[in-house]
Design a protein around this nucleic acid. Sequence first.
RNA 1: GGCGCAUUCGUCUAGCGGCCCAGGACACCUCCCUCUCAAGGAGGAGACCACCGGUUCGAAUCCGGUAUGCGCUACCA
Length: 541
Amino acid sequence: MAGSHQQGIKNAHFHSVGQSRSPLSPGEIAENLEEAELNERRPVRVRYAPSPTGFPHIGNIRTALFNWLFARHSGGKFILRIEDTDQERRVEGAVEAIMGSLRWLGLDWDEGPEVGGPYGPYFQSQRLSIYQEAAQRLVTEGKAYYCFCSPQRLQEMRDEQRRLGKPPGYDRHCRELSLEEQSFMDSQGIVPVVRFKMPLDGETRFHDNIWGDVTFENSTLDDFVLLKSDGYPTYHLANICDDHLMEVSHVMRAEEWLSSTPRHCLLYEALGWEHPEFAHLPMILGPDRSKLSKRHGATGLLEYKEMGYLPEALINFLALLGWSLDDRTELFDREALIKGFSLERIGKTGAIFNIEKLNWMNGAYIRQLTPADLADRALPYLEDARNGLSRPVGMKRPLDRDYLLKIIPLIQDRARTLGRTAQDEGLVQLAEFFFVDDLDYDPKLLLGKHLTAEQSRSYLGTAIKRLADLTDFGAATLEGLLRPLSAELGVKTGDFFGLLRTATTGRTAAPPLFQTMEVLGKERCFKRLKAATQKLAAVGP
RNA sequence: GGCGCAUUCGUCUAGCGGCCCAGGACACCUCCCUCUCAAGGAGGAGACCACCGGUUCGAAUCCGGUAUGCGCUACCA
């Protein structure tokens, strides 16, 4: 099977730029910049700005990936900023999960938590005064106002609007409050929020690098909240302030933000700032075409690590969800992805996350690994063989790496994940029988399609006898003995080898028999062959 | 309901007026290889390019409408 691995590499057609792992050369970056940034002289600075309200899922991470690819492609900076402005929904451990996810995929950030940077801090909760000052300034300039409406009033207002079939939105009740009215409310102890004073007419138009020109009537936009009563900013305010202060050049985020972009444009304008370029990424959908969520099954990125997907395979797969290089390239190494990535080739339609294709791709990546690398990556999964489908296997630990190294060539072409899969195509499942002491299988499997229990018993007995004299238990020797024996016994090789396969591996589908027996070793094979004859006794005639 | 956006094989997609009675990939089927299962190789099936009009010598590609879908419509991001 040594040749099979070579073949795997040869036929996988991995698209590579044919250079080492080093980043792009300055010349290449300049070239990329020229093609992508004709109108823009600003250095590229992009950011991934998740909120720690949960663990990052496939969709979030795809956004991170696109930002990272764009930054690396253009020699710009990739910033990680934590948007922790919602105190209520904050989830413990989320920040760690975010960083862990990025690190697992190798998406390194140039500025952000743990690495710092000249535009910090990178946690919005540590930048509150910035937002408060901005809100204050807008109020002073008459571009925003205090709103004292209670949550109850707002809720009733919305219910009423819904009942009347009118477009929902704040009714601007507090927009023109007099100073007296305001101080009265203050004296009542009501803490106001700050709302943006939306232009009542006109339209807001902006250019999106993916969607083209988009226009909104200002009259359809309401006076949204900038600063909450707890002193924290809303996403809109914080996002705008930080993107401006951190000199973000391109805002790349999910499509669901497209509708709030006019608000952001207006806010930039009110603050006297120029807005960055926008690029709204198409969404990742569940099989029912709705926004991917927990009810679609595994969505957390780290779950994919648990299941035994390779980070490079996941990156490749995710990159192809919404982006393509051309009409045929499917497999990219990291450098090829960086080199080929461009905003121009991002599509607009939501993409369904198709796990089948991921499985294929992961298999392709597994095949392309060196056996030693695969062994090292597989070891943790074998040691802790619980992932997903669970059921601990009866292996003695710690595992013998040298033994594993001999097994790898036999299962490398067959594995689709490093863990377990529902179709038994996970590496753990494929390797399992090499490690356990006692095989547990249905004795009937020994009979195959054409043999009786009696025949099986007899063939097995003969095989054991002949095998006993063997000093060399190599695959070639085994074949040299067993193939003629099959003829001698007058059994089809398919039936005979099938019998031996089940006896030695406990399954009907396994790697090639002779190599498998060689790796298993004489002692283990004998034990299993004898156990099989025992089992046969239980089947009857 | 309002606003915005989208619509090419089951799925991911190529296509930016003639090269397309639409190309690639996954999945599926057949065959080859073969001790089983994979991997690999060779084929196949699968899309009236959502629909209806228009522009044009010519449209999947441009324009309009319809339908459907999705997103947003919070003191959430």
